[in-house]
């Protein structure tokens, strides 16, 4: 074929597209046992200017090599309140709890915008349902409390390499919500709002493992499995009650077993929650100066200290 002189031509010999070595040698597989939860890091009081705050992290497994994708979860929560309602709000006999969940734009594989989309609002509603059962709202009339959650790093929705499809219906949302429930519970207790109990979130899933059998796993990391059904519960252990349940997928005949496993996962998460809240409360009480220690009567006894008047 004659060379076309009117244009800049491609090299005569033809080109071959570059072939890159694939980064993933093998997709990550679950190394934990089926009933083992990932290690949780939970600390309260990280934002001193807020009434209550907490930070929750699922650190990545140090045993996996750094190049393979590892799923981890980082959530911060701040609680503002109880504070007075705005002037033109109607009288509310109970505490007005509002939740606000937002993924940071860099939190997931595909960038999210600054404005909340519908999946984040949905997460906020689930969280509100879970927390409203725990908070004793009638002790806080005419007040509002805001729970603001920022997800700094979210979970992948499916096995690595698969087209994750719609971000909103992914399985990773359940694990993120479980973390949000636990961290919000720690922050609310840190803020001093009355609660009936500590609420913890737990997830269990029915997954296809290598032999394509269906097994139940606790605390699934969706990047490691092909999930068939998953269930999240927000569990109150001292009352044995569930304030929030979210189940997706086809559980077949064993729905009760799936719920039981989710409750078990929530119980495992609660042990960490109890530790963290206890540590921070002890630190706070120890830091309180002696005159502020509670006396047995509600009002303080003795000589009231006056404000110094100058002059």
């Amino acid at each position: 074929m004659q060379a076309d002189r009117r244009r800049l031509n491609a090299p005569a010999g033809g080109t071959a597209p570059p072939v890159f070595a694939s980064a993933n040698t093998s997709p990550p597989r679950r190394r934990r046992k089926a009933d083992e939860h990932r290690k949780i890091f939970l600390q309260t009081g990280i934002v001193p200017s807020a009434a209550g705050s907490a930070y929750y992290e699922l650190p990545p497994d140090p045993a996996t090599p750094p190049l393979t994708r590892k799923s981890s979860l980082k959530i911060t929560c701040t609680v503002h309140g109880p504070r007075p309602l705005p002037r033109n709000a109607a009288f509310s006999p109970n505490l007005l709890l509002t939740t606000h969940v937002k993924y940071a734009p860099f939190a997931t594989k595909t960038r999210r915008g600054y404005v909340r989309d519908s999946s984040e609002r949905d997460l906020g509603l689930h969280l509100e349902t879970a927390l409203r059962g725990v908070v004793i709202g009638e002790r806080w009339p005419k007040s509002a409390a805001d729970v603001v959650i920022t997800v700094l790093e979210g979970e992948d929705d499916g096995p690595a390499g698969a087209h994750s499809g719609d971000m909103g219906s992914g399985w990773g949302m359940l694990s993120v919500l479980a973390g949000c429930i636990t961290v919000a519970s720690a922050a609310i207790v840190d803020a001093g709002i009355d609660c009936v109990d500590l609420v913890s979130g737990g997830v269990a899933a029915l997954v296809h493992d290598q032999s394509s059998e269906i097994t139940t796993v606790l605390d699934p990391a969706p990047a490691e499995h092909v999930t068939r059904a998953a269930c999240l519960v927000a569990y109150l252990q001292s009352r044995d009650e569930i304030t929030e349940m979210w189940m997706k997928g086809d559980a077949g005949g064993d729905l009760g077993g799936l719920i039981e496993s989710a409750v078990q996962s929530a119980t495992l998460a609660r042990t960490v929650l109890v530790e963290a809240v206890k540590d921070s409360t002890e630190a706070r009480v120890a830091a309180m100066s002696p005159p502020e220690l509670p006396s047995t009567d509600a009002a303080s006894k003795g000589r009231p200290k006056d404000v110094v008047t100058t002059g």
Partner: peptide, 14 residues
């Protein structure tokens, strides 16, 4: 078979 369950916040709490 059950394909989804969600708890709805009961309005009685308000």
């Amino acid at each position: 078979s059950v394909v989804a369950i969600r708890t709805v916040d009961p309005p009685s709490r308000l």
